[in-house]
Amino acid sequence: MIKLIAKKLLRLFFILIAVTAITFFMVNLLPGDAAYNIAGPDSTAEEIENIRKDLGLNENVVVRYLNWLFKVVKGDLGESLLARGLVSRAIVSRLPVTIELLVLSVLLSLMLAIPFGVICAYKPGSLIDKAVSSTAFGMMAVPVFVMGIALIYIFSIHLRWLPATGFSPISAGIFANIKSLLLPAFTIAMVEWVPLMRVLRSDMITTLQENYILMARSKGLPAPYILFRHALQPSSLTLITILGLQIGHLFGGSMIVETIFALPGIGRLLIGSIFGRDYAMVQGCILFTTIAYVIVNFAVDMLYAFLDPRIRKQMVDGHG
């Protein structure tokens, strides 16, 4: 068990090193003049020279990387050019919005994926299964930005139920806060529930053929109880994997939804900084979202053990 965790931690460590290195060297080693690209086409030679000095393009690269890494570990991501403040502070202030959006959208997509996945697996090939599965297949072809616009059109322009833009922080009341995040979260959920539903359905169909499900039926337990209490947990390993990948992606991938709905989250910070050529901020955002992604995936790996006692056992045995 300890050996296994150590192995995974080691892997996590290497990936983090790779991630920071790539983020750092991207600015320094790419072909073309990074300083010119960062400064943008309208910049003067002086501006470019300043940026080049800022990046320290003339010093030894490895030394600069180590210096930078040392600062990053201390939480110093440098200073923003535009916002005139610390990059780390800007990221921390945007973080709650992204996390809130993430949690809400994960909850909504599970609320769609689990019932539909279970119903479809219970009666595969039935009318409802066919209807749900083909709707889901069709929805896979809807990009998240199209989904966002469609939902805005339906719910805020046509029905006028929910606001299309504008974020209301928790401090302005929890109800208003959730209301302002509901449509963006629903947009993400409508796209993300599909793969979750599909893997749950196919894993659950396999589980329902297991002997212990027959045994549970022979005990005279009602079908919903068997589906949710006996079959759901053993069928949810792939679901958790996909969910973990999605959460990781959403840390950075929420930028589209944040842009559509004008939410002040990390993703929009990144986009804004790209347009503003605020390279310290861009670097900070990329670093942050990538690390968040890597760590979420690591956590999901660990979560497996708690879902399936057999894997827990393998981990313990692996120690011996």
Binding site: N211, S218, K219, G220, P234, D308
Partner: peptide, 27 residues
């Protein structure tokens, strides 16, 4: 199905061929 479940649980019980796979592994 509801009446059947009453019989399955209380009236008649069954033991299966393969005890290794007839218990739920995560419960």
């Amino acid at each position: 199905e509801k009446e059947l479940n009453k019989i399955r649980g209380q009236g008649a019980a069954m033991i299966f061929q393969d005890p290794l796979s007839s218990l739920n592994p995560v419960m």
